[in-house]
Every structure is written in structure tokens, then in C-alpha cells.
């Protein structure tokens, strides 16, 4: 009897886990087949097969403009957050004083701040400064969210760096700048790179702050999707969503390859 309960329990557990995996992955994957629907409905399983919603996306100037805006903002965010985040992570890593823990907490706190709170704060302040609704404004706001992501990635890379290379290089007479550009930066490149990719995704997906900060001329893709979800479910959203999911997966794969190649 005890044996039966044990086997039965184990079977139940396996089934439960399989269901959880489906629950986690299904909503991400379901987007792709839905986007190939032939009819004007988000049917799954899809009816027929067509690229008509991708064509509709490509032929709609509003969506195309949003695609460009999103890309510009994301690359801007990567530039700002990768620079500031990498420097900050190196600073934190070198810091040996009691200040380190509170400083690190301070610099990672945007991650746990409710994004709506951040959104209204930034909206009110940026409106006063006249940068609400502009692309630089969006880049700055997204960077607040992206810098902590870069810091985490670079800190992880720093922790795996051999500890004595920097003293060795300086001991051999390298200047501080030379050591930074010739030794530290190359060693940290995988960490900075994955941080930059995650920063890109953070900006590329950001919807809440962007809805507050965009003017009609600077709408990003998530802002348009957000509007679309509220007014009516068009299969164009599924097509855009599929493109975004594919891009995210690609970024993930690139980071993965980069990391394993470095380890090899």
C-alpha cells in the first residue's frame, strides 16, 4: 500500500510539472500560430495560413513608424545604460567600504519600485522640463530601468574574473587607462554584452512608462499594442508580438552562445 501511494504520488507530481511547463511556455508560443490566421480573428488553432497580418503591419505607416521609434529608443538606452552601468558595476566591485551594500541596494532599487509610480513621477517631472514625449526623454526613463540590469550582469562577470590580473598589469607598469582598455574591458566583454542585450530587451518591451511619456509622434511598439489591446483585438498585434518574441528568443540565443563560447 505504501508502495502504491509512493508511485501514485510520483506520477501525479510528474503530471503536475508537465502542466506547469505548458502553463509557462504556452502563452509565449501561441502568439506565433495565431499571427498566421487567414481570418480577422485571433483563432487558435489558426484558420488557414497567410502572411496577411504581417503585410498589414508592414503597410501601416503608424506601426512602421513605431517600429523605428522603438528601435531608436532601445539603441539609445543600450548606449546610456551599458556605459553608466558598466562603470558603476566596476566601482561597486572595487569598493571595499561599508558603503558598498547600501550603494548597491540604491542602484538596484528601480527594479523593485512599482513601475507605475516611476511612470507618474517621471511624467510629472519630464513635463515640467519639456522632455516628455521626446525620444531623449524616453531613453532616459528606460535607462533608469536598464542600468540595474547591466549592473547585475557586469557584477556577475567581475566575480568570475581572475582576481589578480589588474594588480599584475599595473605592477608591470601599465597605466590605469591602459589597464582598463587592454585588460579589464576585454575580459568583461561577455558580461557587458549580455547586460547590453538585456538592456535592449528591457527598453524594447517597456510599456507602462512609455504610455505616459510618448507623444503621438513618438509612440513605441508596446504603446501601440497597449492601445490595441484596449480598443479591440486585432491579429496585427499577434503579428507584431511574434516578431518581438522571435527577436527576444534570438537575443537570448546569442547571449547563450556568447557565454558558452567564453567558457570553452
Amino acid at each position: 500500500m505504501d508502495r502504491f501511494i509512493q508511485t501514485f504520488g510520483k506520477g501525479l507530481y510528474v503530471v503536475f510539472m508537465a502542466l506547469v511547463v505548458v502553463y509557462l511556455v504556452f502563452p509565449v508560443l501561441v502568439m506565433i500560430p495565431i499571427s498566421f490566421n487567414e481570418i480577422n480573428d485571433l483563432r487558435f488553432p489558426p484558420v488557414g495560413f497567410s502572411f496577411r497580418w504581417y503585410e498589414a503591419f508592414a503597410n501601416d505607416p503608424v506601426w512602421v513608424h513605431a517600429l523605428f521609434t522603438s528601435t531608436k529608443v532601445a539603441f539609445g538606452t543600450v548606449a546610456v545604460s551599458a556605459t553608466l552601468g558598466t562603470l558603476a558595476a566596476m566601482g561597486l566591485f572595487q569598493c571595499r567600504s561599508l558603503m558598498r551594500a547600501p550603494l548597491q541596494g540604491y542602484m538596484l532599487s528601480p527594479i523593485v519600485t512599482p513601475v507605475v509610480v516611476l511612470a507618474i513621477g517621471v511624467f510629472m517631472v519630464f513635463s515640467r522640463w519639456g522632455i516628455a514625449g521626446t525620444i531623449p526623454g524616453l531613453i532616459i526613463a528606460h535607462s533608469v530601468l536598464a542600468i540595474p540590469v547591466v549592473i547585475v550582469a557586469v557584477l556577475t562577470a567581475l566575480q568570475t574574473m581572475p582576481p589578480n590580473v589588474v594588480p599584475a598589469a599595473t605592477g608591470l607598469g601599465g597605466s590605469r587607462l591602459r589597464v582598463f582598455f587592454r585588460i579589464e574591458l576585454p575580459l568583461l566583454r561577455p558580461g557587458i554584452f549580455s547586460g547590453a542585450v538585456f538592456a535592449f530587451i528591457t527598453s524594447w518591451d517597456e510599456a507602462v512608462i512609455s504610455t505616459f511619456l510618448t507623444a503621438p509622434a513618438t509612440k513605441t511598439l508596446p504603446v501601440l499594442i497597449w492601445g490595441g489591446v484596449q480598443t479591440g483585438l486585432s491579429p496585427i498585434i499577434a503579428a507584431v508580438g511574434s516578431i518581438m518574441v522571435t527577436l527576444t528568443a534570438l537575443a537570448f540565443v546569442v547571449v547563450w552562445i556568447f557565454r558558452t563560447r567564453k567558457a570553452a
Binding site: 501561441v30 518591451d205 508596446p222
Partner: peptide, 14 residues
């Protein structure tokens, strides 16, 4: 790493 908005949208559809 897939956006919250898109996953929520998928749940609405499902």
C-alpha cells in the same frame, strides 16, 4: 524575457 504585455495579451486570447 518576453514582455509582460505580450504574455498578458496571449492570456486574453486564450
Amino acid at each position: 524575457w518576453v514582455s509582460v504585455l505580450l504574455r498578458t495579451f496571449a492570456w486574453l486570447v486564450l
